[in-house]
Amino acid sequence: MIKVSGLKKSFGKANILNGINAEIAKGEVVVVIGPSGSGKSTFLRCLNLLESPTGGEIEYEGKLLTDRRVNINELRQSMGMVFQQFNLFPHKTVLENVTLAPIKVQNMPKAEAEKIGLELLRRVGLEEKRDAYPNRLSGGQKQRVAIARALAMRPHVMLFDEPTSALDPEMVGEVLDVMKALAKEGMTMVIVTHEMGFAREVGDRLLFIDGGQIVEQGAPRDVFANPQHPRTKEFLSKVL
């Protein structure tokens, strides 16, 4: 579904990604771990071109994303993204947050968008908050709304950029539960995370990124139990 080859990204003189090759299959849940500053978030943000790569290619559903002629706005509609800082629209209610893009981007009739939106809010357990503004929500609730907002565009793949890193510990569970349910339904997901337990439980495949490269990958259970590369060993010994 997504094929990344030789992906490079540098900011000025700093090389963040040094040639990443990866493939993500339909229905697969790929978790990305690595030390801070390793480039894992940059890798994820390159997948929907929030960061434009300085080299290499990204193919998505048979289209070359890194081709300048490609209509990125159209392709992004089928790639949901969830941010560490939620980035809900503070001037819109919870329901408006969820329905805005379907109405304005996909020209969906308002009634239909609201029906779908409410259904999604019910799924993340926040239907009763439909008319609240984001600043009335807890961090966990905000992130669940953000997930519903991304799902409203009926994405083919969901990208999660450290979705629980900004949450108080007691709220991490509610967000992970929503993500687990999504994974169970067969959603293709790429998740940058520090939640090792979650990565082990939900991930089909784990990528360990360090120094802008994929150092090691495999089934999460195997990598956690028996890391091959010294840098993976060192990292896991610190976080597990």
Binding site: E74, M81, N87, F89, A101, Q106
Partner: peptide, 25 residues
């Protein structure tokens, strides 16, 4: 916050739509 533009763009909004709907208000 620049996350607002990123969130809007990640939903498939064009820059000008994001500007009108999200940033300017």
């Amino acid at each position: 916050d620049k996350g607002q533009m990123e969130a809007a763009r990640s939903l498939g909004m064009s820059r000008s739509l994001a500007m009108r709907q999200i940033i300017l208000p």
